[in-house]
């Protein structure tokens, strides 16, 4: 069995977000890049499945320019066997899914994080399954290999759902898929130097959306402390200032 884990290269969650070009593009100056946290958990689960036996190879794939390679190297250091980078800047979800579809055909299981922590699009995994004509399940919080099928757990309102599904499968995973992401060991980092990172040319495709404008959220208002015995003042504030009552 071959597993492909989709890796999105996103700004570190502590990044101070700024925009340039009259708020039309993200300012990436000085930004630290990390593996999208959901993808990192997906990779961790892929490693667990491989360690349990029955998985021959884990590949990681990313759509992006050379600057995204440290993120792929980290995935290799964690334990992926090889990496694919589609050499083109990622545009919208359709464009990314279209590029990935070219390199994802030969895998039995594709793990995609439910969203990327930068644009929170929630779209690539589903689009990719459609393009490849693979089965697909979203909001997956548990997956195991059961002979030629997969057993999949989904969190649903008020409970969970257990599914059995045949491959090839795109599993769109959320938190819970693995406990915590693995930290690469120094020996893993050394070994990652020698693992293949294949750069493939992009196919001709056009994005279906364009970014018009960004806006930062309004600054947080000052916090008002109300004495615990003074419920009346709290109600007055909620009513007259916050206008939520």
């Amino acid at each position: 069995m071959k597993i492909l884990v989709l890796i999105s290269n996103v700004p570190d969650t502590t990044t101070k977000v700024r925009f340039t070009g009259d708020n039309t593009s993200f300012d990436d100056a000085g930004v630290q890049w990390i593996i999208n946290p959901w993808d990192e958990l997906a990779l961790t689960r892929a490693m667990e499945l491989k360690e349990a036996g029955g998985v021959d190879k884990i590949t990681v794939a990313n759509v992006g320019e050379k600057t995204t390679e440290p993120t792929l190297r980290k995935a290799l250091a964690v334990g992926a066997d090889d990496a694919i980078r589609v050499d083109v800047p990622a545009r919208d979800a359709y464009f990314v899914a279209r590029q990935l579809a070219e390199v994802a055909k030969d895998y039995d299981l594709i793990l995609a994080g439910i969203e990327a922590s930068d644009y929170n699009g929630n779209a690539v995994g589903g689009m990719l399954a459609e393009m490849l004509d693979f089965n697909s399940v979203s909001a997956v919080s548990g997956i195991s290999i059961d002979g030629d099928k997969f057993t999949v757990n989904r969190e649903i309102d008020g409970g969970s759902q257990l599914l059995s599904i045949t491959g090839p499968l795109v599993a769109i995973v959320q938190k819970g898929i693995a406990k915590e992401p693995r930290i690469p060991a120094m020996r893993g980092i050394m070994m990652a130097r020698k693992k293949p990172l294949n750069v493939v040319a992009a196919v001709d495709a056009h994005e279906k959306t364009s970014y018009v404008n960004y806006e930062l959220p309004a600054p947080k208002a000052a916090c008002k402390m109300v004495d615990e015995e003074n419920a009346k003042e709290l109600i007055t504030l909620l009513h007259e200032e916050a206008k939520v009552l």
């Binding site: 250091a77 930290i183 690469p184 120094m186 980092i189």
Partner: peptide, 17 residues
């Protein structure tokens, strides 16, 4: 190098955790 940064950040994550 990128590898130095990966090494540093990995140990940083471990220390935080």
């Amino acid at each position: 190098s990128d590898e130095h940064i990966l090494i540093r950040d990995s140990v940083r994550d471990w220390v935080n955790r």
